[in-house]
């Protein structure tokens, strides 16, 4: 194994430009993946915060008797997706509006806003489909005039997150394929350049696994370095965005390690495919 590591490290000295090219390609493939991953991550985190504020608000027809609404309130609170349901009188609605919206500061007529039942959803039931289903059920009550739940922008955020994830995966895979091809060709050149050495190895009884191992180590090392470079680039991009645009979250340690290991895997895959094919030719 010592020889395998020595030979693998020697390969970097023998072809520094090609090695750098392979590492950079892997780095960019993972960086593309990482960048869109960061977008998806931040949207997800934003969604979690937004979701906590997701509320279904059912406006009540004027003059609905209190006993009718309080019975309904109990029913709604018992929905499995619902965390809490509370009655908001026109006075409370005006009070809240005056606090949250400046244009209500000089309005004092409580009759201007309708009473409502404000419903908070349980965690895990705040996705657009579930919220919509609950809103529709509440809408079936005769005394409910209208139901609002910020449908459009919740859906939009979800769509952006899915798109960012998809673009990240597609771009990442494209770059990863390019990286596999580039690593494959550098390994091919390395195999051909070392044809004599390989024939001597075979002659003195080296196993195929032993002959392959320096090339596999070389590929995996390039991938690992590419992964680290990508992580650095992603961290840099993240700090630039955090400084100049908005405070953005970064990957947790587990995800970062997985990303670097993915680089090693890409390198390993590229060299394994290439070395398997080209060893037969020497």
């Amino acid at each position: 194994m010592r020889l395998a590591w020595r030979e693998a490290l020697l390969a970097f000295r023998r072809a520094p430009v090609l090695s750098a090219l392979s590492i950079t390609t892997i780095a960019f493939s993972l960086f593309a993946f990482g960048l869109f991953g960061l977008v998806a991550l931040n949207i997800r985190n934003a969604l979690v915060q937004v979701e906590e504020r997701v509320e279904v608000r059912a406006f009540i027809v004027d003059g609905t008797p209190a006993e009718v609404t309080s019975t309904a309130l109990g029913d709604i609170a018992a929905f499995p997706e619902v965390l809490s349901a509370k009655m908001v009188s026109p006075e409370q609605a005006l009070e809240r509006a005056r606090k949250e919206l400046g244009e209500f500061s000089d309005v004092f007529d409580p009759g201007i806003l309708p009473a409502s039942i404000d419903v908070r959803m349980k965690n895990g039931h705040r996705d657009p489909a579930t919220v919509k289903a609950v809103a529709e059920r509440i809408r079936t009550y005769d005394f409910v005039d209208d139901v609002r739940f910020g449908e459009e922008w919740v859906e939009k955020l979800y769509r952006i997150r899915n798109l960012a994830t998809l673009v990240g995966i597609v771009l990442g895979l494209t770059f990863a394929s390019v990286a596999v091809i580039i690593i494959g060709s550098t390994i091919r050149m390395a195999v051909l350049a070392r044809a004599r050495e390989i024939s001597v190895m075979r002659l003195v009884g080296a196993t195929d696994g032993f002959i392959r191992s320096p090339f596999l180590i070389e590929g995996a090392l390039k991938g690992l370095l590419g992964g680290l470079l990508a992580l650095g680039l992603s961290a840099l991009a993240n700090s630039v965005i955090s400084k100049f645009v908005f405070r953005a979250d970064f990957f947790d340690a587990k995800f970062a390690v997985a990303g670097v290991l993915a680089g090693a895997l890409i390198g390993l895959l590229g060299s394994a495919v290439s070395v398997g094919r080209h060893l037969r030719d020497v």
């Binding site: 020889l3 001597v200 003195v204 009884g205 080296a206």
Partner: peptide, 8 residues
Amino acid sequence: AFALEVTG
């Protein structure tokens, strides 16, 4: 030495 190294 190479011949010995490759055989472990």
